[in-house]
Design a binder for these strands. Structure first.
Length: 333
DNA sequence: CTTTACTAGCGTTTCGGGTA
DNA sequence: TACCCGAAACGCTAGTAAAG
């Protein structure tokens, strides 16, 4: 949930609490939020918690765990609500998240590592091997100088929407009818892709030499699995809430509810199914020799369990160009 | 061997904080 | 106040594994 969506999402959560309680919903919340989604979620909560005595909004979500708290004679259940358009549990994190939150000790952040090995300069040299850029590409004092040129190279090889840029570059190079200009663009694209892959593998080599902090790794896994996906949420909860989260999971009092924004269908997920089965011994980040994603694993080598996969990638233009970030996946099996 | 299902990877869009 | 740029949401697809 982006910051910019906090408004309607929070209004919908508050509305959900009122509907679940059977109290008169505020008109302004109905205006600001999504009454249809609130109704669907409230109905689901009523069904899942027949013995509830009240549902209350957790207020500022950083003061408490969860967005909604379901009260019942047996105690409180903390509920994190996500309003999603599709997809399963996943998170998009900032590029330096793993080092920022101390999963690795004294490791260089990815962004810093690229600077140190001269990745930006190498990339610039490659981009400058093309000399037919339009007049309006910005000069090298702008970060966007790179984006403008990469965009142009994509235009030259004519990458269609959704198409993998590297595959398209290969097509161009294999096409006897491709122009020399197109070939040059394709070759540069491929060289930047390769440079980026080398850079990632080198970074993984570096990460492999760093000490890891099992407690920080365990905290990270718990927060992600419990729906704390944003930098702000991780910041607010990191470490100090791990023990509380573990207690909630052990007492089966934490739930993740996903409400589909289009259909209004609600799915409930119990993070304990993902997290409570582990003993959290030998928790570590596994870094493959090839490949561009790492895994959070736990358990002894003979019974190592994969908890999360974390992919290092760039989200814009093509790999090596714009918006380095991390994609987190929860492996199914 | 073919089809389906899944996920890792890659992509665009949108927003908003910072700043010149 | 315009623009830069990172953060976040989340869609689409290629490649591969599982199922038929």
């Amino acid at each position: 949930m982006g910051k910019h969506e906090r408004g309607w999402a929070e209004a919908t959560e508050r509305l959900t609490a009122q509907l679940a309680n059977g109290t008169e919903p505020d008109d302004d919340l109905g205006e600001e939020g999504r009454p249809d989604l609130a109704a669907a979620l409230a109905e689901r909560i009523r069904r899942d918690s027949p013995d509830r005595t009240a549902v209350r909004h957790a207020g500022n979500s950083y003061d408490s765990l969860g967005d909604l708290i379901v009260e019942s004679p047996a105690g409180e259940t903390f509920l994190e609500a996500k309003f999603v358009a599709s997809g399963g549990t996943r998170a998009n994190l900032g590029q330096d998240t793993l080092t920022e939150f101390g999963l690795f000790e004294d490791a260089t952040a990815w962004s810093e590592f690229r600077e140190e090995i001269g990745f930006p300069e190498d990339r610039q040299v490659l981009l400058q091997q093309f000399d037919d850029y339009p007049d309006d590409v910005r000069d090298w004092s702008y970060k966007s100088a790179v984006y403008d040129r990469a965009k142009h190279l994509k235009n030259v090889v004519d990458v269609s929407r959704g198409q993998n840029t590297g595959s398209r570059a290969d097509e161009v190079l294999a096409d006897p009818d491709a122009t020399e200009t197109q070939r040059t663009a394709a070759r540069i694209i491929n060289e930047i892709l390769e440079l980026d892959r080398e850079e990632k593998l080198a970074y993984f080599d570096h990460l492999r030499t760093a000490e890891q902090d099992p407690r920080a790794i365990e905290t990270f896994a718990h927060l992600i699995a419990c729906g704390y996906h944003t930098a702000d949420a991780l910041d607010e909860h990191f470490d100090r809430d791990l023990d509380e989260i573990k207690r909630l999971i052990e007492t089966d009092s934490y739930r993740l509810y996903e409400v589909n924004r289009n259909s209004g269908s609600v799915t409930a997920e119990n993070p304990s199914e993902l997290l409570a089965g582990f003993e959290w011994k030998d928790t570590r980040v596994e870094i493959p020799e090839d490949g561009t994603s790492v895994s959070v694993v736990t358990g002894p080598p003979d019974d190592r369990r994969r908890v999360l996969n974390v992919a290092y990638n760039w989200k814009n233009k093509f790999q090596g160009i714009q918006t380095p970030s991390m994609n987190v996946f929860v492996p199914e099996a």
